[in-house]
């Protein structure tokens, strides 16, 4: 039972992070390998706002969320926009370089020590007993809930809102989208903003649950296989991919070897690349596109 709960929580973490990869990839065919760092930056922003707005945890969280949305958009406007028209690889390497830059800057500003935004916010994190003898921390439960809500919102946004439809249109055929008067830069900036926002929400909740360290980058990277297993251009896929990766990881850690933790997602990734490289729900043509 506890195993099941652990799987669900981990799957929620991976799914929430993975949707950031999917959003950016789907719209602009760029793989954002700085996602882990951006997500960590979001958590540090929460730490910063928590100490600025002491006593108003909700204000602090809201401000941190808005800031992270802006950070994502700014990353596009000031950096990734310059890479338009370059090779796909160049864009990916730029995100890697950005990740390194951010990691360095974050350590300079906030030091490498473990921090607890939960304490700064004054948020308590009691464990909740579930039927069946399993336990789940409040923040973890909140995380599962947040994942469900955010996925619901994203689906609705992409399906029903005009900007969501434009985002999908730009992802399918940027040329035609521009001909239809859609401002591609605005769309891409929005995708980067949303991606960073969702990633930051994941980062904030994780850091509220278990503290904030450099390992968060690794969590971000481990969520990438979830996105790819589901299909890099499919949100539904990211959900299923996260579930598969999380289930594999938790059960192998439990039954085989705890050291496997960091490698299992990538093993799943390799298996998927061998049997069905475009992912469970991805479109097959994606392979030839890059």
């Amino acid at each position: 039972m506890q195993l099941g709960v652990n799987i669900i929580v981990l799957a929620a973490i991976y799914a929430l992070i993975a949707c950031g990869y999917v959003l950016i990839y789907r719209v602009s065919r760029v793989l954002n390998l700085a996602h882990g760092e951006l997500m960590m930056l979001g958590s540090y922003l929460l730490l910063a706002t928590a100490s600025t707005f002491t006593g108003h945890p909700l204000v602090a969280i809201a401000v941190a969320l808005v800031l992270s949305l802006c950070v994502g958009a700014l990353v596009y406007l000031f950096l990734m926009r310059k890479m338009a028209g370059e090779m796909v690889l160049a864009a990916v390497l730029t995100t890697i370089a950005l990740g390194i830059l951010l990691r360095g800057v974050m350590v300079i500003v906030w030091s490498a020590q473990q921090q607890y935004p939960g304490q700064a916010l004054g948020v308590v994190n009691p464990a909740i007993a579930l039927p069946g003898g399993a336990r789940i921390s409040t923040m973890a439960a909140l995380l599962v809930l947040a994942t469900a809500v955010i996925y619901g919102a994203l689906f609705a946004f992409l399906r029903f809102s005009r900007w969501g439809v434009r985002m999908r249109a730009a992802g399918q055929n940027p040329l035609l989208a521009a001909q239809r008067g859609i401002n591609l830069h605005a769309i891409y900036a929005l995708a980067w903003g949303l991606s960073t926002l969702t990633g930051s929400i994941a980062g904030m909740l994780i850091s509220l649950d278990s503290g904030l360290t450099g390992t968060m980058v690794l969590i971000g990277l481990k969520a990438f296989p979830a996105a790819l297993v589901g299909g890099l251009d499919s949100l539904v896929g990211a959900l299923f991919g996260a579930l598969i990766v999380a289930a594999a990881e938790i059960s192998l850690i439990h039954y085989v070897d705890p050291l496997l933790s960091d490698v299992v997602p990538f093993l799943v990734l390799i298996v998927m690349l061998i049997i069905r490289p475009w992912g469970l729900f991805g479109t097959r043509e994606e392979l030839d596109r890059v």
């Binding site: 370089a97 950005l98 990740g99 390194i100 830059l101 951010l102 990691r103 360095g104 800057v105 974050m106 350590v107 300079i108 490498a112």
Partner: peptide, 9 residues
Amino acid sequence: AVNYAAFGL
């Protein structure tokens, strides 16, 4: 950390 940041830059 400075090294990291400068390298990324």
